[in-house]
């Protein structure tokens, strides 16, 4: 049994390092979407909730498990949809960094306003 615990502990420790490593360089404008995106990822508790409800033997377990499935679904679905809505805004635009290109971009903007 302790072998199993050790295996989980290994996975845990490695995940800590991966988690820190992958977001070490994030521009501040992406802090909010990143928070929201990782919020959706911990919605994986839905898998746990399904296993719990799927194993339920008593009424108490059924009620708690059912509640867990609802809450977890809210977390996972809401999380991904909100994040997607935020990131919709980051679609690429016509670059207008150079002064020469500026007039064209202004013309294009005038059309949609």
């Amino acid at each position: 049994m302790t072998n199993v615990l050790l295996q989980y502990a290994t996975v845990f420790v490695l995940s800590v390092f991966v988690g820190i490593e992958i977001i070490s360089k994030v521009p501040s404008i992406l802090h909010t979407p990143l928070m929201s995106g990782s919020n959706a990822i911990h919605g994986v508790i839905l898998v746990g909730s399904m296993l719990i409800l799927g194993a339920a033997n008593t009424n108490a377990e059924e009620v708690l498990g059912f509640l867990a499935v609802i809450l977890a679904t809210l977390n996972v679905v809401g999380g991904f949809v909100v994040t997607d809505r935020m990131l919709e805004m980051f679609k690429p635009r016509t670059p207008r960094a150079k002064p020469g290109a500026k007039a064209d971009a202004d013309g294009a903007k005038g059309a949609d306003s």
Binding site: Y8, S15, V18, G19, N39, H42
Partner: peptide
């Protein structure tokens, strides 16, 4: 923590990723 209890590597990895990156964030 739930992942440890249920013995699910998926929950442990996903939860820990969020826990670690969230703390850094």
């Amino acid at each position: 923590a739930s992942g440890f209890t249920l013995g699910s590597n998926l929950l442990i990895v996903a939860g820990t990723l969020v826990g670690a990156s969230g703390t850094l964030l």
